[in-house]
Design a protein around this nucleic acid. Structure first.
Lengths: 153, 153
DNA sequence: TATTGTTATACTCTATAACTATA
DNA sequence: TATAGTTATAGAGTATAACAATA
């Protein structure tokens, strides 16, 4: 055995460390979202749609870390609120394509400065190199395949 | 201005990158928790109590990233289930101290191997150096103070 | 048969305010 | 006045299964 059968300290446990780090960042972001009446989930959906354009719902669910049943209800509300539109796909009529509206783009644009300011504060205290290193490592981690067991001793 | 007033790509946005990376890890952990009938929150509470011993509820809330009202209800259920005990503080009778029970410790111990296996898979694919680097950076990020504005240009 | 998405349901968590008790 | 915790409540998300439509 190369590893002890002991639990790691919570600050060295990835899921908890990721959550705590995220909570630090989310405090000012929640303030912003509260002012504009969006939930975290709706914000992630808008960011996703703004970035990748018109896509089907399964793709949004994957990118925004949401389950399809949650997404269905959230998108219905967002459509009512005018942030997104939906249209069926002609070639595969099971699919629905979702697109951000100008109103959706506008609310993102109107709050860019908050994101930029936050990013600047983090960069100021962490340093640009460390920040980029962290983003690189998070991309690596996200790509890790946990479906196969690790090699056994 | 040193920063463009544009939104970063979602994979280079810390809150989203942190969430996606965490989701990757949580898939196998949720399977484990489901089997033993614990929610993610209860699991974090047990991990916290196991690590720092008998503490007041505000401290648990902070460490496990939960709000006090959520914690109150969850701890009541966990007390009924025999995972924790609570006792009032004699010197400051507003406080309640919470402690993990042997049953709580047992359920952690019984699932160490899942955590260890997961950690091993990540280490195998990411490398030990990168993994430690990531954990260091997450600790740094968690300690960032976002209450003061960044220096203005 | 598998996939895309919807609906229904039960449960849980979140967020906020109001409240009690204590310091 | 401030702090620790509880209660109440409304809203939202999570998880699962069952379902319809389509491929």
């Amino acid at each position: 055995m190369t590893h002890d059968e002991r639990l790691l300290s919570t600050s060295r446990t990835l899921p908890i460390a990721l959550l705590r780090a995220r909570e630090t960042l989310m405090v000012p972001i929640r303030d912003m979202l509260h002012e504009i009446g969006l939930t975290e989930q709706k914000w992630r959906i808008l960011r996703t749609l703004d970035e990748i354009g018109e896509v089907e719902q399964s793709t949004i669910a994957q990118h925004a870390c949401l389950l399809l049943p949650s997404l269905t209800r959230t998108l219905r509300r967002m459509e009512e609120e005018g942030y997104i539109t939906r249209r069926g796909d002609a070639s595969d009529r099971r699919k629905t394509f979702v697109r951000i509206t100008p109103k959706g783009e506008a609310i993102l644009a109107g709050n860019v400065s908050t994101s930029v300011r936050l990013y600047a504060r983090v960069e100021e205290q962490l340093g640009r190199d460390k920040l980029n290193q962290l983003l690189d490592l998070l991309e690596d981690l996200q790509a890790v395949d946990l479906s196969k067991p690790a090699s056994q001793d």
